[in-house]
Computed example of a mutant assay.
Amino acid sequence: MLGNGGESPSRYELLSMVKKHSNLIGKTVVDEEDASDVEMDQKFWHDVLDLYFIGGRDSKEQQDDDLLFFVRKMSLHGYGFNDNIEGNSPYFVRRWATKLDDLVGESSMIIDWRRSLYLNLIAHTSYSITVAICSHQSLQNHQSNQGTTLSPIYKIVKTVYASPSRVNFHLDSRKEVETKPAYPDICFAVDDFDSTFDAVVLTDTDHCYCVLLNAVGGAAFPSEIPPQDNADAEETNKAKITLFSGFVSYEMVREAYDAGKSGFGSLLPFGNSAGKTDRIYMKGPGGRGEVEVAVSGVVDQSLDESGPHSPLQISEGGKFRIGAIVRKAASVAQVAAKNAYAVASSTRNADGGMVPLKCCLMSVSLPWEHIAYDLLFKGGVPVNL
């Protein structure tokens, strides 16, 4: 149907076709009058997927691009599936091969080619997550005046990957325990969350915990023509789309942490105290998406005043001090941690005051249709931290 009898369309041209026939994205109720004949034509989507991800695959040597995802037709497999039944998943995976029809074989008849195209577009795009601590006053100033520079107190940028599956972590052992299908949600997980966000500690009631997910390259960013000069190349490299941005105040994180299992599904059978870790979930702005965070109180290190410090103890002090903005020697950081914790503890019992909270982002989840729509149509300036 596409590229017959002539040169195959470029990726840029193919994506333009996809945009033209993507009126159904995001609609919970589909009116057939809103859909073009092409949009309902599975052969069209089969051919686009073939040309885009088989014939047009840019980096065959890159292992990250080896997997292709195929969504089963809803008529054969609805979204109300039982995750615990082996093989009862809304999608299946194959490794890249030179011919699409040979790759899927007889399974071709059960594939929803339209949704499969979108899922692969999402999966083969590159993403980064930014986790930052910002001043609440600074955020308010930025919201009231977009021209105001937003300078985070501390931030970490991490490369993440889109997956139609979700990994559940045991916080007490830091190990992956099981993987389940997440589709129609897409999950961006941080497997090493405990070490990656080791230094993200809210140490002031004015602090806000900020999460930003950007698409930064890959399949959703094809170039029509190669850059002609250095300036164009620089602009091409700056391509970015913000898919998720939101923040919560220290008070909101503290409230969720204190609520424990009664309100937020604590993994522990006893009350919260410094050093205990709870899993909390935060909805995105407008209820869009979900952020999963492991929150723990900073351990009081003033209990051990004598003797040489173990690497673990030094690390704990270092974590807090970095989270408090300044990178200094571990010995200095440990003193700061003791003092801050002492101040927090002295007011905690009296008025529920400040307790330093370490926040380790575990995952961000978004519905695939939201991501696909933004990758195809979202304009404007991306959010930067």
Rank of each mutant, 00 (worst) to 15 (best):
M17S: 12
G263M: 06
I111G: 10
S266V: 06
H124N: 11
K27Y: 00
H136Y: 03
R11W: 00
I241Y: 01
G56L: 09
D192T: 12
I225R: 12
V18C: 06
S22M: 04
T148C: 04
D50N: 14
L366R: 04
C208S: 14
V343L: 15
S8T: 02
E176P: 08
H136K: 13
Q334E: 05
S151D: 06
R72T: 08
L213A: 07
V355S: 15
H370A: 10
G284H: 03
K158C: 09
V30C: 03
S144I: 05
A233I: 01
M40G: 07
I186F: 10
T347I: 15
R95Y: 09
S144C: 09
F69C: 10
V38G: 01
K358N: 12
A162K: 04
C134R: 00
V167L: 13
E33M: 08
G352D: 12
F92A: 10
V381I: 11
F169Q: 08
F244H: 14
H370V: 11
G317S: 09
V71C: 14
E316V: 15
G307W: 07
A97D: 12
A336T: 05
L76W: 01
V200L: 15
K73W: 00
D64K: 13
S165F: 11
E305C: 07
P9A: 06
R288A: 10
E305Q: 09
G55N: 14
A219V: 04
M354W: 00
P311C: 04
P382K: 04
D65Y: 07
D102T: 11
F81M: 08
G56N: 08
F264S: 14
